[in-house]
Nucleic acid binder design. Structure first.
Length: 479
DNA sequence: TGAAATGTTGGGGCG
DNA sequence: ACGCCCCAACATTTC
């Protein structure tokens, strides 16, 4: 039976916005516009989405505000709906008489299967569903090892990427687009309740400007200077030496190929930064081929690793009260701004799994809850890398010394002072190890350990030995 | 995209 | 002048 609705020149084409909240270099929007039909942009808030931490929801709210403005420039509305996307889209097609839906692919576990399901369910109703690439520079299945399997080590992946992937130029920008009259359809942005009910979001507002224009601004700032010294400065947490694009990229407010081409145009010095973009590709490649790694270690010998640290220390870590300044500064930066410098992420994450012996899954969950850039693929990859149980992983015996990392990457203590004001007046000699500072130094700086700033929750040398011991035991058990 | 322990070397103080 | 020792600086190995 043919259920196809009569498609007229006035029947709309729906653009289903997902994590691609931009109007430039937007394959789905461009394809819809090219049909000549009126275009109906829609965003569907689904419950139970993986990125539903409060910080992430805050970002989404403001990103939708921004998208609505951008669409208005093209003469388009943005319809907001909530519920299961399939039901919602079917309903919207029926109501508006649409016969085509365009969207970008997404790449989290079960997305591929789900997109299959969408395509067939919609085609049953005579509606064409088109999923476009555009969220990544390469599809997760594009690159294969010589043996035909997925990569598990970055360097060979990087080589294959450099050899095979040709990144297209971004799409030409759109002029006005024919719009579909969407009156009386959809709900208000406020009713999505994405904003926090109590005002804890001041730090986020001060730090970020969600949306495509904020993304463009960060890219421009980065390419105007920091990109040149990226290799040496990206590890300094008190310097704005990184692109600050992670959250914008996660929500698709800017496309990876826009970044790729803009960076490349600045010359050969952009190479280290471009390589960093390919880590994102690698993380998505891994998650696609090993979807179970969101909660299980990639390397099976870690299945029953004894993560038997004191569970009460999880909240100590979350609050930034471990007594190790670099770890605490990072955790407080995260809580306040929804973001943490990457070098500090490595140190703070290593501290949770190796010093505190708490499961990396707990850390990953906390990061998903609090990061504005919370991204399942990147986050999963990063945590497994840190714990030593993932792809291209840090060997387990590589235990970061948070004090040394502080001295090395924050030699003046500027980052510590920014996020731990109670240590403000401690000299750079002692700011990374207040618990070793002479009593006079502490007194002069007005710091009483245990009152103003905590004693270390565990001694570094002791923790290191304990972690190495667990590793040795695991190796024994797997022989 | 470590850190700590251990090993090696070479300059200089000193008898 | 010579050998001995100390130890800082660097290199290598181990976890």
């Amino acid at each position: 039976m043919n259920l196809q609705q009569p498609s007229t020149a006035n029947s709309p084409v729906i653009v289903w916005f997902r994590r691609d909240l931009r109007t430039s270099d937007h394959a789905a929007l461009s394809a819809a516009a090219a049909t000549g039909h009126p275009v109906l942009p829609v965003f569907v808030l689904e419950s139970g989405e993986s990125d539903n931490g409060s910080a992430s929801r805050w970002w989404l709210h403001h990103s939708l505000v921004s998208l609505r403005k951008e669409l208005a420039v093209l003469g388009l509305p943005l319809v907001l709906l909530r519920g299961g996307a399939l039901e919602v889209l079917l309903g919207l097609c029926a109501r508006s008489g649409a016969s085509e839906v365009h969207a970008h692919h997404q790449y989290e576990p079960s997305d591929a299967e789900r997109e299959e399901k969408f395509s067939s369910a919609l085609s049953m109703q005579g509606i064409q569903m088109h999923f476009h690439p555009g969220t990544l520079l390469s599809e997760p299945t594009d690159l294969r090892t010589g043996k035909g399997g997925p990569f598990q080590v970055f360097t060979p992946y990087w080589k294959a990427f450099a050899n095979k992937v040709r990144t297209q130029e971004p799409l030409p920008s759109l002029d006005r687009v024919r719009s579909f009259e969407a009156r009386d359809i959809g709900v208000s942005l406020e009713s999505l309740k994405l904003l926090p009910s109590i005002g804890w979001d001041g730090g986020l507002r001060a730090a970020w400007n969600p949306g495509a224009s904020g993304a463009a601004k960060n890219l421009q700032r980065f390419l105007a200077g920091p990109v040149e010294h990226y290799d040496s400065q990206r590890d300094l947490p008190h310097v704005q030496g990184t692109s600050q694009l992670s959250a914008h990229l996660h929500f698709g407010e800017i496309s990876p190929r826009q970044i790729w081409h803009a960076a490349k145009a600045t010359g050969p010095t952009a190479a280290p930064f471009l390589r960093q973009l390919v880590w994102r590709e690698f993380a998505h490649h891994l998650l696609h081929h090993f979807p179970h790694t969101t909660d299980k270690p990639l390397r099976p010998q870690f299945e029953d690793f004894p993560w038997d640290g004191d569970p009460s220390l999880l909240s100590t870590w979350q609050k930034g009260e471990t007594g190790y300044p670099l770890v605490d500064a990072g955790m407080r930066q995260l809580w306040t701004t929804g973001w943490m410098h990457n070098r500090v992420r490595m140190v703070a994450a290593s501290f949770l799994v190796k010093h505190l012996l708490l499961p990396w899954q707990e850390g990953a969950a906390w990061f998903r809850d609090t990061l504005v850039d919370a991204d399942l693929a990147n986050n999963t990859f990063g945590w497994q890398w840190t714990a030593g149980c993932g792809a291209d992983a840090a060997p387990y015996f590589r235990v970061f010394n948070p004090t040394l990392q502080g001295k090395k990457f924050d030699p003046e203590g500027a980052y510590i002072r920014r996020w731990i004001p109670e240590l403000q007046n401690l000299s750079k000699r002692w700011i990374h190890e207040p618990s070793s500072a002479p009593a006079l130094e502490l007194a002069t700086a007005g710091v009483t350990l245990g009152r103003d700033y905590p004693h270390p929750v565990i001694d570094h040398a002791v923790a290191r030995e304990r972690a190495l011991d667990c590793y040795r035991r695991m190796r024994m058990n797997n022989q």
